[in-house]
Amino acid sequence: MEHGVGYFIEMPGEPSIYLSGDTILSPVVREFVLRHQPQVSVVPAGGAQFDIGGEIIMGIEEVVEFTRISKGTVVANHLEAVGHCPVSRTDLSAAAIRANIESRLRIPADGETLELTRC
């Protein structure tokens, strides 16, 4: 189901998954997560931004907040992937530990395969 800021997928016997697409933690995204509580969410975490203005995809603070409002596993992507995504895996991991959400925030290495099971 497309809802304007990504896709929500539910298949029998599999965890529900939310693929957010490139977005910030907007009111629409926040409301969607609170209402549907996907078992797995994939979110952009690189903190990309232009030379002026704010972030155009989630950064550390928004990924932490997203993980807090979600009851499922959150997978961070777009880290250290392109020059305009300054968020590092190390910094995001440290923030997750400080926020006590490290058990639900997955920060895969480049090329790593994650196996996610039904919660």
Rank of each mutant, 00 (worst) to 15 (best):
A48M: 10
L25K: 05
L116D: 08
E112Q: 15
L114A: 08
E10T: 11
V43A: 14
V87K: 04
V82P: 00
Y18I: 03
K71G: 13
V33K: 02
G46I: 02
S20A: 15
Q49I: 01
T67D: 06
V5S: 12
V63D: 02
E14A: 12
V28D: 10
R106P: 00
V63K: 00
L79E: 04
G83R: 05
T113C: 03
A99P: 03
L19A: 03
G83W: 10
S103D: 14
E14N: 08
P44L: 09
S26D: 12
G13E: 01
I56R: 11
S20R: 04
G54I: 03
S26I: 15
F50H: 09
V43H: 04
C85R: 02
P86D: 06
L116E: 07
G47L: 05
Q39D: 15
I101E: 05
H3S: 09
V74N: 06
I97F: 07
P44Y: 09
A81N: 05
V42N: 02
R106I: 15
S26Q: 11
L114S: 13
I57E: 09
R118P: 00
A48N: 09
L105K: 04
M11G: 01
V40Q: 02
T113P: 00
L34F: 10
A81F: 06
A94F: 06
I69L: 14
I101W: 02
M1I: 09
V63G: 02
G72S: 06
I97A: 12
T113A: 12
I69K: 04
I9A: 07
I107Y: 06
S70M: 00
P27N: 08
S41L: 15
A96F: 09
A99S: 13
G72P: 05
A99Y: 02
H36R: 14
P44R: 10
